[in-house]
C-alpha cells in the first residue's frame, strides 16, 4: 500500500461509527475514527455517520470540532454524511432545534425526521444515479429528506411518489460533498461507500 493512500475519518462523537468503518474497509479504504481537532487534521476525507444530529452538533461545539470541520469543508475536504450526517452537511434545516448548528457545505434545506417517527421507518429500493447494477437498498430510520436544493447541487436519488405522497430527494452531491437520507452502512452493500472512496481518490489527485 502506498503512503499516499488517502485516509478517511469517521466522525466518532456518536452514532453508527463501527458500521461505516467496516463499510469503508470493505471498499478498500483506510479508515479511522475521529473525535478531536488534531485527529481531523490527519485525515484526507470524512464520513459523518448516522446518529442523533442534535447530540452530534452539541458535542462538536463542546469539543471545538465545529470550526475546524467548517474550515476543512470550505477548503474542499470530501465528506459523506448519512442521515444525521446529511443534516450536518445542510446549509439550512427545518424541524431542528432552534439553536441547532450544522457544519453546512451543501446548498440544500433538509427537513429532520421528515419521514416520521420510528413506526414509519422503512426499507425501499432506490435508483441511485451513477451506481451500476441493481437499485440500492435504502434503509430509512426516522430519516430526513431534502426539501430543496440550490443550483450547484446534483440530485442522485429520489424516493418515487406513491400513495399520494410526493417524490422526495434522498441523495445529493455538491462538489466533494455527498449526502444520503438512508443508511447504506446497514445493508452490507458497499457501493455508495465505494462511490465516495472514488470521489476521495479523485480529489487527492
Amino acid at each position: 500500500m502506498s503512503s499516499s493512500t488517502p485516509v478517511i475519518g469517521v466522525l466518532a462523537l456518536q452514532g453508527d461509527v463501527r458500521e461505516h468503518l467496516v463499510a469503508l474497509a470493505e471498499a478498500d479504504a483506510l479508515a479511522r475514527p475521529v473525535r478531536r481537532p488534531e485527529e481531523l487534521a490527519e485525515v484526507d476525507a470524512l464520513v459523518i455517520p448516522g446518529g442523533e444530529s442534535t447530540t452530534m452538533s452539541n458535542l462538536a461545539l463542546a469539543f471545538g470540532m465545529m470550526a475546524p470541520l467548517r474550515e476543512r469543508v470550505a477548503a474542499g475536504m470530501p465528506v459523506y454524511g448519512s442521515c444525521a450526517g446529511m443534516i450536518m452537511l445542510a446549509e439550512k434545516i427545518l424541524d431542528g432545534r432552534d439553536d441547532q448548528q450544522t457544519v453546512g457545505g451543501i446548498d440544500m434545506t433538509v427537513r429532520r425526521n421528515a419521514f416520521g417517527r420510528q413506526n414509519e421507518s422503512f426499507e425501499s429500493a432506490i435508483e441511485f444515479r451513477g451506481l451500476e447494477g441493481d437499485p440500492v437498498h435504502g434503509v430509512f430510520i426516522r430519516a430526513p429528506w431534502v426539501e430543496s436544493v440550490g443550483a450547484g447541487v446534483e440530485v442522485l436519488a429520489e424516493l418515487p411518489a406513491a400513495d399520494g405522497a410526493e417524490s422526495r430527494i434522498v441523495a445529493v452531491r455538491q462538489g466533494n460533498l455527498l449526502a444520503t437520507s438512508f443508511h447504506p452502512e446497514l445493508t452490507g452493500d458497499h457501493r455508495v461507500h465505494a462511490y465516495f472512496v472514488q470521489l476521495v481518490a479523485a480529489a487527492a489527485r
Binding site: D16, E19, G51, C83, S121, I141
Partner: peptide, 15 residues
C-alpha cells in the same frame, strides 16, 4: 422490519 428496528438502536450508539 428487523433491520429498521435494530438499525434504530445502531443510531443511538455512543449516546
Amino acid at each position: 422490519t428487523a433491520r429498521v428496528k435494530r438499525g434504530m438502536a445502531e443510531q443511538l450508539k455512543g449516546g
